[in-house]
Amino acid sequence: MASLFSTSADSVVTDSLESLADESHWNGDTAVEAASAPIRAGAARAAPLENDADVPLDVHDLTVAYHRKPVIWDVGFRTPPGALVGVVGPNGAGKSTLLKAVMDLVPRASGRVRVFGKPYRRQRRRVGYVPQRESVDWDFPVDALDVVAMGLYGDIGWMRPVRRRHLALAQEALDRVGIGELARRQISQLSGGQQQRTFLARALVQDADLYLMDEPFAAVDAATERAIVELLHEMRANGKTALVVHHDLQTVADYFDYVLLLNMRVVAFGPTAEVFTSENLHRTYGGRLTLLDEATEAMRRREQAL
């Protein structure tokens, strides 16, 4: 935490924020303990090291700041293997940022991430990423098969061409998500649901063990939603783990075994049945954090004025 603010000239602000941070940390831990989840945030400290390689994702004390405004604070959790984990929280809670920070796409202010016991950069092949659909330009001159084949670029290697067997693998992945016949269609000609399935296929073709999905259910048709859920269940049956950012509270209990309630910090994490309670939801979406939010906002404004 201190490293984030070490360059701040204003020690008063630093102190007050650090005490705020401590408080939030304390809040986060008690929240988890109150939920009596078997997997505890921050449990990494006490956990024996030898079975770390079995833990798909171990996040400890993760803090990320954009332009000095903290987006997520002190996030810590350990996903059990073979679990479907829903990441739930209000807009701006830092859900996408959490995924990006896990994959080193945004600089962390502090914290540690372990994927199957090792840093992410050594486990890239075992992690499949499904970005938000809106994050790319769908007018780009490629077809669905091309996009799925991008999931294999890491395996194909630098400066080597995509070969027929790679395209066959990509076609297989498209078949699995049910749009095999659209392989040669330009991606702007696909419906929203079909585009989302293309992204899923791109992650599937990697045959990863941990999947990080950013809002795969956003603005898709009912058939695609069913297909994604089936896919998730199939993954779980094969012992894969998925961390899925989700926005539809109605379906959380149906789709996910575990829930991570996030609002800048971890409000609660654990099995859905225990953690996904109206009280926890209220704490996630309610006004408890406005003070913290205002403080960081004030801090950011002050930094800008300097």
Partner: peptide, 14 residues
């Protein structure tokens, strides 16, 4: 091609 289409994914893949 990957860089132009989806920079974040390219970054995630190393």
């Amino acid at each position: 091609k990957l860089l132009c289409f989806d920079e974040a994914y390219a970054g995630a893949r190393g």
